[in-house]
Design a protein around this nucleic acid. Structure first.
Length: 310
DNA sequence: GCGATCCCCAGTTCGATACG
DNA sequence: CGTATCGAACTGGGGATCGC
């Protein structure tokens, strides 16, 4: 990150140094190069988060919501649906965007072609699928594999690289999500139920949804965290992560161990690491998603900034 | 060149075992 | 009994490597 955001990087770097001196010694960023690289990763993560938050209010072309359009974008489509009060569609689009993900080269093509059903029929909108799961299943069995077999690359994102486009898995994953929501009748009814159960605090809501997402197949710690933080950023659900969910993590846990103890393999209690992140964020005020994202990317190359792609 | 094979990954699932 | 914890088994697809 050359030149740009110099002030913000400097400010974060100084906060890290002060925190180390006065609150808890952060062994992983004791060196100048490491502290600088970490500060740059934090600013880089903040910018990615801010980009998505801005989608909620910025001007968007209506074709962003049209899967037949070249400029279809499921996150922008979710933002547009939210503005129209169509929370069901906003959640569903966010779910599909998270499940398929944006591939570094193929972009949103996999999401677009599933959601738009390759133009073979009306789009698989929430209104359509939630009332016609059987139609979705037969379409996946009978048409989807042939439609995919056209020589065009439609890959999952890095975070979803173990997923499969097989009809069996598609039915299992999408079906389990549809079932999960259908128990409540609508996404808004689910949110109301969460509020009844744990109150209205965004951290409590996030945590309760995180637990309940176990009902959705193939959505583990990473997929669930990506999905729920997306809902929060786009203003689709009033939730925000109150922790980095290190207990179930691999990369972010490694990153936090390196950050705090100077050793990615350190035998550290995730709960204690979370408490240190809590205290640090009281000063940084960047949010837990930025911390977990930045520390995961930083630990790959701790002594110099490498932009995360993928 | 080109297909076959291998390896990796910020993963997931399943079943066994240990608890209260 | 339920349920928490743990590790082994297994995952799909891309890209690198290998053998021809």
């Amino acid at each position: 990150m050359p030149g740009l955001h110099r002030d913000k990087i400097d400010q974060i770097r100084d906060t890290l140094a002060n925190f180390s001196a006065n609150v808890f010694p952060l062994a992983g960023v004791a060196g100048d190069a490491e502290r600088q690289a970490c500060a740059e990763q934090l600013v880089s993560s903040m910018r990615r988060v801010d980009y998505v938050k801005d989608l909620a209010t910025k001007a968007l072309h209506p074709n962003r919501a049209d899967p037949a359009s070249e400029i279809f974008d499921p996150l922008m489509a979710a933002a547009l649906a939210t503005r129209q009060g169509n929370y069901d569609e906003a959640w569903w689009l966010s779910f599909l965007a998270t499940h398929f993900g944006k591939h570094i080269n193929d972009g949103w093509r996999l999401t677009k072609d599933f959601y738009g059903a390759f133009g073979t029929r009306a789009a698989w909108s929430w209104a359509t699928i939630s009332n016609n799961v059987a139609d979705l299943h037969s379409w996946l069995d009978q048409q989807w594999p042939d439609l995919l077999n056209d020589g065009v690359s439609r890959r999952f994102s890095n975070h979803r690289k173990y997923e499969s486009k097989s009809p069996a898995q598609m039915k299992a994953v999408l079906g389990s999500y549809i079932d999960f929501i259908s128990t409540f009748g609508s996404h808004q009814a689910l949110v109301q139920d969460i509020h009844r159960a744990v109150g209205q605090h965004p951290h409590a809501g996030f945590d309760e949804l995180y637990k309940r997402m176990r009902a959705v197949k193939r959505f583990g710690r990473l997929g669930t965290f990506d999905f729920l933080t997306m809902l929060g950023k786009l203003g689709i659900a009033p939730i925000e992560p109150g922790s980095a969910y290190l207990a179930d993590a691999t990369g972010p846990l490694r990153g936090t161990k390196l950050f705090v103890h100077g050793d990615p393999e350190a035998d550290a209690d995730p709960t204690e690491l979370e408490e240190i992140l809590d205290q640090l964020d009281a000063q940084l005020q960047v949010g837990k998603q930025v911390l977990e994202d930045a520390l995961c990317n930083w630990q790959k190359t701790p002594d110099r900034f490498v932009l995360f792609r993928g």
